[in-house]
Amino acid sequence: MRLRQLSQCVELIRFIAVEIRYGCAPVSDMLFGAAHNEAFGALEFLPKVETDAACDFAAAWRQAVEAAASLALKREEKAILLRFGESLGTTDSQTQLLLCERFAAQMKKQLDEADARRAESLRLTLGGAIVSALILFALIL
């Protein structure tokens, strides 16, 4: 679940960057697009932000991310997500794109590390299982 959410976070930031680059879309439109997009189905906090964003977007984002029980991200990953939300819509498009790039890179790094750890743990589990099977086989013999 965490890997899926991390991957969708990276995709979300890239989606927002595209909306800013080609349409200078307002945050409300981007949120609407993201909240109703199945590709971001694992990020259940998005519809909540969309509902509350009319008053204060940054506060709505922070509250929704912090309150999302289904969000299985680690603390540092949540922190990246929070910083991204707080920076969204606060500056000109060029800076906004650079920020998107930076947050996407940070999130991608977390995703790659999590992926590598998962692969390593899979490898260890598989290795352990093979060794155990071999020992069991030897004992039986």
């Binding site: 409300s28 977007f57 000109d92 498009s93 906004q96």
Partner: peptide, 13 residues
């Protein structure tokens, strides 16, 4: 300012 820009400064750049 944030409210005037609809929390989207880049849109009103």
């Amino acid at each position: 300012f944030r409210m005037v820009c609809g929390f989207s400064v880049h849109t009103h750049q």
